[in-house]
Design a protein around this nucleic acid. Sequence first.
DNA 1: ATAAACTTTCAGAAACTTCTGAAACTTTAT
DNA 2: ATAAAGTTTCAGAAGTTTCTGAAAGTTTAT
Lengths: 184, 184
Amino acid sequence: MTPIVTSAVLHFGEMGSRWGFNRTVGQMLALIVLNDEPLAAQEIADALNISRGNTSMGLKELQSWRLIKQQHVPGERKEFFVPAGSIWVLANRVFEERRKREIDPTLTLLRDLMLDDPAHENDAQVQHKLNEIHDLLESVTAWSQELQHLGPEKLNTLMKLGSGVGRILDLKDRVLPTKGESQS
Amino acid sequence: MTPIVTSAVLHFGEMGSRWGFNRTVGQMLALIVLNDEPLAAQEIADALNISRGNTSMGLKELQSWRLIKQQHVPGERKEFFVPAGSIWVLANRVFEERRKREIDPTLTLLRDLMLDDPAHENDAQVQHKLNEIHDLLESVTAWSQELQHLGPEKLNTLMKLGSGVGRILDLKDRVLPTKGESQS
DNA sequence: ATAAACTTTCAGAAACTTCTGAAACTTTAT
DNA sequence: ATAAAGTTTCAGAAGTTTCTGAAAGTTTAT
């Protein structure tokens, strides 16, 4: 590994835990993404100086996140690993996987609690707040799925638009006035 | 605590660790948000059955995330705590704080690495990939800040628009054709 | 100045997560 | 059938985080 690759790998290891996986899994991901050649498990273990067992678990986890895929190289006995897609695809997968882990269970619980009968007077009030949280999380979920379906090019257009989004919204209110609600 | 509040508090405790803070901090946040009355530290410790010391640390952390604020009740000696704002504000704070912890350090590192001289031939190649990651993260950052500045009402309009966003983008390409790039 | 009411800090205990390496397993070639 | 090449699993060691509770600190009232 060149010094640049080493720095990146170490950093992604440290950040890994903040992004939902552990240090070695983060390092492995960085290494696989930055290498042009497919990598074998043993090469990863050697490069990162971690045990072969840990490597195996890490590869399994990265596959469960659908961030890497196996690639069979003809004439070779062992399996090789490559990124599961472009940077854009990988970022999306991380997003989606985290949504599943961080938001979906809460949405389920909130829906259940909203169906419960209020046992005390201020429960109705509590349920109102839970409802508010639910709606917000649901909007975020719907919205992030929407962005994923847009694909990278359109998203890029949208992002380059930046603060123009507000203007576009106004535009839309004028062009399609019957559809949205009539606020501000 | 009524059964509904108890369920919500326990759940937010479990999710807490996925959202960037620990179990008790998650529970404390849920409790404070769902209570209409300001709560004192001792009341929180009693309700959640945790030590007074842990409560103190948790309150400090929630304040560092700017999710709760102290509120002095006249005639009372102790401090009381209330949410720092509406659900919308709180969600935004969590988002922003996580951006600071999860994305900003990586952006800094990537910028530094891109300035390094390529030491080996394929470093140029690696730097290209790092650049791609950098641009993606930067777009996400800029975009999320944009959404925050829109405020809840406009964001809501945008969210209700849902799959209409694609259509609006096309619309914009037709109405303001000189500005964006001319893709697909 | 003293005491009462309250908060913060911090050392170490408890709980949890991650990592290793050896043993068990699978696949392929001969 | 056997051996060689490779992978997976898992018990326990190492490391990390979280929590408690007692001691130190702060503020306010008298």
